[in-house]
Write a protein that binds this DNA or RNA. Structure first.
Lengths: 183, 183
DNA sequence: TTTCGTTGAGACATTGTTGTCTCATATGGT
DNA sequence: ACCATATGAGACAACAATGTCTCAACGAAA
């Protein structure tokens, strides 16, 4: 009987990932429930988005945990991270765009936690001599988000094969486009 | 007397870059004109966005021309391109996001022209042996857009210094984050 | 000064979305 | 079988944004 809140959030995420302006009615129908029921479980659109925000943050944090960023080389850790975060890429992309709308309002502190962890990872990579030090950890973090979003859309629109998602992101982020003499 | 259409578009671009959901009223006030006047010159919000789309496409095409992508090394050409497109980065970011809302609808063919030119540039770079061939031109094009958007937002939010805009994008796109043995 | 065209301000109807409510129905537990 | 609870469908008001219209004021050119 009781509604599967998780499943509703999943389908909402899937829909809003494709069409970020979907109405509550569309979200409800996509979840196979009535609009009234959707409103009973999420006080309003804001509450729904906040719930999705928490879901997304939770997923990315789980990905960060699963990637075990401290083990082995930073490069391998980055590969594990991108692979682990791939299922959440669309949702992450939606949330990043959504967050750009909040002008000065208070943002979910979860984003700060994520930024701090990713940023710290890049900094450690720099300290270990694996990453360049002329690109700031903050920028590398932004770039990672940007590439994940771009790749998610490119895959969705069929411009990039979904199986290449991880490879394209990691290779570009690590090695760049330049054909260079490497180890 | 006659309204400066160009100046209105500029201020609309500046505002919508920061707040993509700004209303017609906000756009009008930002331009220092009345809402009625705004409506007299742009039939509606769609028309305004289309006009901004044309402006953005025109600016990026001008940047592509100015960058003279066929002259010298592909790497230097990319540096020129990013430098030339920097003033349009915010507008470009807004338009890219806006375009993601159009589900299957017909997109402005100008985007196809831009994509084709940028994509062809990366392909030539590959053929000249300057760029890796395991990253498709389509992906490199997407990645360039994504990094430009990310950088534009990062600068706007003060996470990246505006003077580092070009350097951050070009260095990451060309060389990646890995500290490698290079020429 | 007169005239013509443009503007700003505001009123107005329209539209789409949201949020609330009611009521009949269905489901699950007892 | 009974009851409590949750649901779906629909009605409803509230609200925000859009698009249209009118009218008075303004400025430039004759």
């Amino acid at each position: 009987m009781s509604l599967d809140r998780e499943q509703v959030l999943r389908s909402a995420a899937a829909l809003l990932t494709r069409k970020s302006t979907a109405t509550m009615d569309e979200v409800a129908r996509a979840a196979g429930i009535g609009r009234a029921t959707l409103h009973r479980h999420f006080a309003g659109r804001d509450a729904l988005v906040r719930a999705l925000e928490n879901l997304g943050i939770q997923e990315v944090e789980a990905a960060l945990d699963a990637a075990a960023l401290d083990e082995g080389s930073a490069q391998d850790a980055l590969r594990r991270l991108v692979a682990a975060v791939e299922p959440s890429a669309g949702l992450l992309s939606f949330l990043v765009t959504e967050n750009q709308l909040f002008e000065g309002e208070e943002v979910n502190e979860g984003w700060n936690r994520l930024d701090a962890r990713v940023s710290a990872f890049f900094r450690r990579g720099q300290e270990r001599g694996e990453f360049r030090i002329d690109l700031t950890p903050a920028w590398l973090t932004e770039a990672l988000y940007g590439l994940i979003s771009s790749a998610a859309w490119a895959v969705q629109d069929g411009r990039v094969a979904s199986q290449d998602f991880k490879y394209m992101i990691v290779e570009l982020l690590l090695g760049g486009a330049r054909r260079s003499v490497e180890q």
